[in-house]
Design a protein around this nucleic acid. Structure first.
Length: 289
DNA sequence: ATGTGTTCCTGTCCGC
DNA sequence: TGCGGACAGGAACACA
């Protein structure tokens, strides 16, 4: 599911139920995901209050009382759902709340909060990650240390990007997927941003003019902002509404549209799919140069 | 240093 | 229906 807009949507949905509530009990239902869970995870979560729910790139960061932060990455297939007893007034929580259900196959971590609320992490492919880190030294964590700037923050601007891409012979597509250059973009939003900026995904990163780099920065910011506004993108929808309210997938101009017409007025081109470093890229060869 | 390919894992979809 | 293969929103890691 998740690139930056989806993770931000999840964060906003979880903030109401989680912030200010204590974790009464943590149910750890397997040893780990991509890596083993940290030592004593359940015991270290128990009794902690969630002070703040933040995000860095595609990482959710739940700041807990006692100086530790719970880090969660959703990988490719991770989902988080909130459930409550049937009589709960869900509206006050500001998010979609399910009734409680029996644990399912890929429910790996369940947080039992105050007021009967539960937060469940489900991740079939298990590319996700969970860790606990020292809040005071948050940005020194190995997974966060090397990240580039937030694309919606002030540090991400044309001069930065120009300096970062100078001399790079890799493709524009690969450069934008590189989390050390800019954090939080994934396959979908890279394709969409390059389309909006009129830049070919195959173009060498170091050979994009500064004017066009400025356009790219703007395109990245607007596509992410619009996607967040839409509640992210929901692909491969699960049967029932899963708290996944995103509808930005209807706004894709190129992603998943191989063979379809270019949406740019008067272009007349056809969206193509190519493979770059093992992943699908969608673009319009006639208006992306 | 940089760039590319492989790998982790399950689920779904498509063609035969 | 069943089966095999391709593919999926990520990113660490091993290598040329």
């Amino acid at each position: 599911m998740p690139e930056l807009p989806e993770v931000e949507t999840v964060r906003r949905g979880l903030a109401g139920p989680m912030e200010g509530r204590r974790i009464l009990r943590a149910e750890v239902r397997r040893e780990g995901l991509r890596w083993p869970f940290p030592e004593g995870l359940a015991a270290r979560l128990e009794g902690r209050r969630v002070e703040h729910l933040g995000r860095r790139s595609k990482y959710l960061l739940a700041e807990l009382s006692g100086g530790e932060t719970l880090l969660v990455h959703l990988g490719m297939s991770g989902r988080i759902t909130v459930s409550a007893p049937g009589n709960t007034e869900a509206r006050s929580l500001g998010t979609f709340v399910h009734p409680h259900r029996a644990p399912e196959t890929h429910d790996h971590l369940v947080l039992h909060l105050e007021d009967g609320l539960r937060v469940t992490l489900n991740d079939p492919r298990r590319f996700g990650a969970v860790d606990l880190l020292d809040t005071a030294r948050r940005d020194a964590h190995p997974l966060l240390r090397g990240l580039g700037p937030e694309p919606l923050g002030n540090a991400f601007a044309e001069p930065y990007l120009a300096a970062r891409l100078a001399g790079r012979r890799t493709s524009a597509k690969a450069a934008l997927l590189d989390q050390a250059i800019v954090a939080g973009l994934g396959n979908i939003y890279v394709c969409e941003a390059l389309f909006r900026a009129g830049i070919s995904p195959r173009r060498r990163a170091g050979r994009i003019s500064r004017v066009r780099l400025a356009r790219l920065v703007a395109a990245i910011r607007t596509v992410l902002a619009e996607a967040i506004e839409a509640g992210g993108s929901s692909l491969r929808d699960y049967r029932q509404a899963d708290g996944e309210l995103g509808y930005f997938q209807h706004s894709f101009a190129v992603y998943g549209r191989e063979g379809g017409p270019c949406t740019h007025e008067g272009c007349g081109g056809t969206v193509r799919r190519i493979v770059q470093s093992g992943r699908s890229t969608f673009y319009c060869p006639s208006c992306q140069r």
